[in-house]
Structures are given as C-alpha cells and as structure tokens.
Design a protein around this nucleic acid. Structure first.
Lengths: 94, 94
DNA sequence: ACAAACTAGTTTATAATATAAACTAATTTA
DNA sequence: TAAATTAGTTTATATTATAAACTAGTTTGT
C-alpha cells in the first residue's frame, strides 16, 4: 500500500538540496543557499546530515580568499532520491 | 523555485491518512489503522491534528457495543492535499 | 461467575528533527 | 581602524513523530 519514506529525504530542505544536486554536477554552498532560501545554519546542518548518510560528498577549499564548500551527489544519494520519489508516488495517487 | 510544503501534510502518517480519505467518502479508525500499518496511539494523535486543522471531521459513535470513529475529509482538507501534491512537484522535477 | 484476552481507542513520555540564534574567523570597505 | 561583509559552524530551542502505557468497556473460556 504505502511505501516507507526515507526520513533523511522526507525533509523540506534536504529534499530541496538533493533535488538541486540531481540536476547539476556539483553545487556551491552559496548556490544552494540562494536557491533554497534557507539560513546558513540550517543549510550547514542539513548538508552535514546528507554527508553523514553518504548521499553527497563535501569538498572544502578556498577561492579568492574565502572558504568554498562544494557539494556533489553520490551514486548512493541518487538511488535514494529516486527511490524516495518512487515511494512518494504511493501517497499521491488519485 | 521550491514551493512551501504544508508541515501538517508533510508527515508520512498524516499524508497517508489524507491520501486514503481522498479516495473514499469516509473511513473508520480501524480501516485507517490497517491500511497505514500505524500504531493506534500514533494514528489517534495524527487524526486529532488533522481534525484541529479542520482537514477532516471525526464522528464518534458505537457499533455492536464497540466505539466507532469515522473520519471524513473536508473541503479545506481536499484543497490542502491538492496544494501539497502540487507544491511537492517542484522538488521532484528531473 | 470470574479471570483472561480482546476491541477500540486516548494520554503521556521520550527521542528525534527542524530551525533559528548566536558564534567563529577571516576579508573587504569606508 | 572600525564597521560591514563573506562563508560558513555550533549551540539552543521549540516542534514532531512515535511508542509505551493506560482507559474503558466487551467477549470468551472454564
């Protein structure tokens, strides 16, 4: 009947992050922040959770003297996202 | 970009309840429990939240000596569900 | 008749979450 | 050189979801 929804993805912000990452090779912290409209703190926490789950990789460096955080989906993350979307459909059928 | 997701519906169990109610005139507590696989306690709490939000009406009576709880979606609940599904799509686009 | 098990829930407690507020650390600008 | 800005992180708080414990009555077995 109803499929389980991965609680890691069933979160507005984390879902938005993954959604963005699905359509690009990689994304900067500031890009994700702008696109999601989230606060830095919230974004930082949720990125870390996705990283802990190995749904994304996070690379930190510097650019023009400023810290630069780059996020990228993993294969695991892609599959999780696709499953989530699939499972979600069981709740939306008319 | 990303639409807001009604937190009342962005919950696995409440979404399942509403999803079930969307396709039937009304549903009994026990029916919802069986279909969702939720515990009675959790179901009771979530039904109450949907009722507080006026997304459903709850009618209590007795049948064959046992308590009988019947749930029914309201117009407000229907609209909220439809909006939720619509808004959710902004997160699922490929 | 009486205890045990069952029906149909509700209430309460706890653990997990999401989020914002406060903070860090360095850089740039006035 | 003080104020503002960039790019975050950490901590605190308030909300949630969920399960555990409980209520109230009914049915069944002996």
């Amino acid at each position: 009947m109803f499929k389980e929804l991965d609680p890691l993805l069933h979160s507005q912000l984390r879902l938005a992050i993954m959604s963005l990452l699905m359509s690009v090779e990689e994304a900067e912290f500031t890009y994700l922040k702008e696109k999601t409209g989230a606060s830095s703190g919230n974004l930082s926490v949720q990125i870390d959770k996705l990283k802990q789950a190995e749904y994304i990789t996070v690379t930190k460096s510097f650019r023009d003297n400023y810290p630069l955080t780059i996020c990228k989906k993993t294969k695991k993350g892609m599959k999780a996202f696709e499953s989530y979307v699939d499972n979600l459909k069981s709740y939306l059928k008319p």
